[in-house]
């Protein structure tokens, strides 16, 4: 695909298309904590609050709730509250949160791995650990961001189930599934949801210049397709201005996702 696409009078990069696709994950979430992990989802969450979803809560990445809009590589100008880690667990278990995590593997039913590649006892590649993924997924809305869509990430079966998927939740019983709420997956190629058969991942839209076949080939399981796979909406001129001038003026986004 090309790195520059037309957006009305303006032009948008792939990173900007992805950030806007992430922003839409939090649409109509109301007064909850948006917890983006890494740069592109962070741009998305701040963009969502600055435009369509002003009631969202955001943290400064440490222990404060931040007000206003601020740059991804800067400290916020105004704060509106205190959110130490202990309070993050409270808001998580209360269900008033929507996290966007970056798994190293995610499968057809949304099981997600942040822990290790290979057998757990002696992994070929040890990663972070479970982190909060088991509790996040059993308690509140969860989306995923994948910076490079490939069959190594979109796998038939994840090596370690950290965030739970629809199949595992159904097997474990109603309490595990009660608040499971898998929303969307944004990758550098496409936007996907979990409205496929039995809660399977489904291709919703491809980013400008990306073909459906390209996404299917980059996915390591049989990918369900929406009836009408569309093109991921382009940023509006106002969104682009916010991203470029306010939220990410130094262009960190272009380092997190690059055109192929």
């Amino acid at each position: 695909m090309t790195d520059v696409v037309e957006a009305g009078a303006a032009t948008a990069t792939l990173a900007e298309v992805c950030a806007v696709a992430c922003a839409r994950a939090w649409r109509d979430d109301g007064e909850i904590l948006a917890s983006p992990i890494t740069v592109i989802p962070s741009i998305g969450a701040r963009l969502a609050r600055a435009t369509t979803d002003p009631d969202l809560l955001l943290t400064d990445g440490e222990a404060a709730l931040a007000a206003g809009v601020w740059a991804v590589d800067a400290a916020p100008d105004e704060l509106e509250g205190w959110l130490p880690y202990r309070a993050v667990f409270d808001i998580c278990w209360a269900g008033r949160r929507h996290v966007m995590m970056g798994p190293v593997q995610v499968d057809r039913f949304g099981n997600a791995n942040l822990s290790a590649i290979g057998p757990f006892d002696r992994p070929t590649r040890a990663l972070l650990g479970m982190r909060g993924a088991p509790g996040n997924t059993t308690n509140h809305a969860t989306s995923y961001w994948v910076r490079r869509h490939s069959p190594r990430v979109f796998v038939e079966r994840v090596d370690v189930v950290c965030g739970i998927g629809h199949d595992r939740a159904a097997q474990a019983g109603p309490t595990a599934a009660e608040f499971l709420d898998l929303r969307r997956v944004v990758s550098d190629l496409a936007v996907l949801d979990f409205a496929g058969p039995d809660g399977a991942m489904r291709l919703v839209s491809t980013h400008p210049g990306v073909g459906v076949d390209e996404v299917v080939a980059a996915t390591g399981f049989d990918l369900a397709l929406a009836e009408d796979v569309t093109t991921t909406p382009l940023p509006t001129a106002a969104e682009l201005a916010l991203i470029r001038e306010v939220i990410d003026p130094r262009g960190l986004r272009e380092r997190e996702v690059r055109p192929r």
């Binding site: 088991p134 939740a169 595990a176």
Partner: peptide, 13 residues
Amino acid sequence: PTRAGLASDVRRF
């Protein structure tokens, strides 16, 4: 009691 961990590999391991 908690919901955290249900259905995940925390239980398998």
